[in-house]
Amino acid sequence: MTSVQLAVVGAHLAGMPLHHQLTSRQARFVRASRTAPSYRLYAMAGTTPPKPALVHAAGGGSIELEIYELDVAAFGSFVAEVPAPLAIGTVALEDGTSVKGFVAEPRAMEGAEDITALGGWRAFMALQAG
């Protein structure tokens, strides 16, 4: 294996504040997609910049995401910078495949707002912007 596909759902999306952590590692955009309809998305409390938490859950929805491809070494250096309570796990996609992607520990939901109904982070950020 020489590369890894990585799904991002929040602050690492194109145009968002942490996207540079992908571009600085020469990540290549693969495609926009959605999760399988079994995830909940939360706006975590007290994060700077604002970040979401993606959690596999019964009664969830399908969440918008972007998939990037990174060389294995770049993926490793990226993962080393992911702060708890976020983590990298396996995310099921709407087409039945899966990729590595951002997921969250249960503690990420403490004080968080469930924004699943919005379908993605961009919609939430647009609401916040007014």
Rank of each mutant, 00 (worst) to 15 (best):
I115G: 07
P85M: 04
A53F: 05
G130C: 05
G130D: 10
M16V: 00
V55S: 04
A104C: 11
P37I: 04
A73E: 15
M16N: 08
M109F: 02
V91W: 10
V91D: 02
R122E: 10
A112Q: 07
A45V: 04
H56Q: 14
E110S: 01
M125V: 14
A108L: 09
A53S: 10
K51M: 14
T90Y: 09
H20E: 10
E69M: 09
L13D: 10
P85K: 00
Y68S: 02
G111D: 07
P17H: 01
L41Q: 12
P106Q: 05
R31L: 10
V99K: 05
V99T: 15
T35Q: 05
Q26G: 00
V8R: 05
M1S: 15
V30E: 13
P50K: 11
M109G: 01
S33N: 07
F102C: 03
T97E: 15
G61S: 12
A7N: 07
G111S: 07
A11R: 11
P17W: 02
R25Y: 05
F75G: 00
G101S: 09
G10Q: 08
E66S: 04
R31Y: 02
A92Q: 12
R34G: 02
G89N: 06
A129S: 15
G120V: 04
L22F: 03
T116F: 11
F29P: 09
V9L: 05
T48Y: 03
L41Y: 06
F124T: 00
H12G: 01
L118I: 00
G59F: 06
L65F: 00
S33I: 04
A87Y: 00
Y39S: 10
A45E: 12
E110H: 02
V72R: 15
E64R: 12
V72I: 14
S98A: 13
L65V: 12
P50Y: 00
Y39F: 13
V103E: 07
T90D: 12
P52W: 01
F78Y: 15
A129L: 11
V9T: 14
V8N: 03
S38F: 01
A80K: 14
S38R: 15
G120P: 08
A123Q: 07
L93I: 06
A27W: 02
R122M: 07
M109H: 01
E105P: 00
L6N: 08
P50W: 00
P85W: 00
T90L: 12
D71P: 06
S62N: 09
V72D: 12
L6W: 04
I63C: 06
I88P: 06
Y39L: 04
A11L: 03
M125K: 13
A104P: 05
V103M: 14
A58T: 14
A112R: 09
V30Y: 07
G130K: 14
L70A: 08
V9C: 05
L41G: 06
R107M: 09
L93R: 11
T47C: 09
E105Y: 03
I67T: 10
L127M: 13
Q26P: 00
L86V: 03
G60Y: 05
P17V: 03
V72E: 13
E105V: 01
R25G: 11
L86T: 02
T2W: 04
P83W: 00
D71S: 15
G89L: 05
